[in-house]
Every structure is written in C-alpha cells, then in structure tokens.
Amino acid sequence: MKDKQLSLTESGFLFDHNSGLTYSLNPTATRIMQMLMDEEDAETIVQKILEEYEVDEKEARFDIEQFVQQLKKFDLL
C-alpha cells in the first residue's frame, strides 16, 4: 500500500496515479478503502465495520476479504 499512489474522494471515486485508471466504490467499499489507505490492520477494519454497519461478523469478514481480493486483482493493493 505504501508504494501505491491512490486518491480516494468521499464520494468513492478512486484514482490510481500509476495506471491512470479510475474506479467507483460504494459507501462501504469507500470506508474500507479509506482504512486500508490509512494502513489499518485487518482486524481493526473488521471491528470498525461491525461498529458502523448493521452486519454480522461472518458476513463482514467474508465481504472484506472478497473486496481485498478484488483490489489485489486490480493491482490496487
């Protein structure tokens, strides 16, 4: 994450300065992305999502993991 140059707006518009590609994130993904860019660890991200959203832990962990895998696939992590 440290080497990536990314810009993320509050609306969820993500710009990869390296590739020039842009992405639109939904509010939950935007929140997770913000935390990843702030270099929060995985467990903190799960706990904060549980605090801020009405979601059970199993579902939250699964969705975060799915999202992280997608970010890796797009070379954003």
Binding site: Q5, F15, N18, G20, T22
Partner: peptide, 13 residues
C-alpha cells in the same frame, strides 16, 4: 474513430 484521444489524464509512473 481514428484512435485519437479526446479525453486523457496525466499519470505518475
């Protein structure tokens, strides 16, 4: 249609 850019963005690589 001719492959010319009509929009573009600066990048940092």
């Amino acid at each position: 249609e001719k492959g010319k850019a009509w929009a573009g963005i600066t990048i940092k690589d």
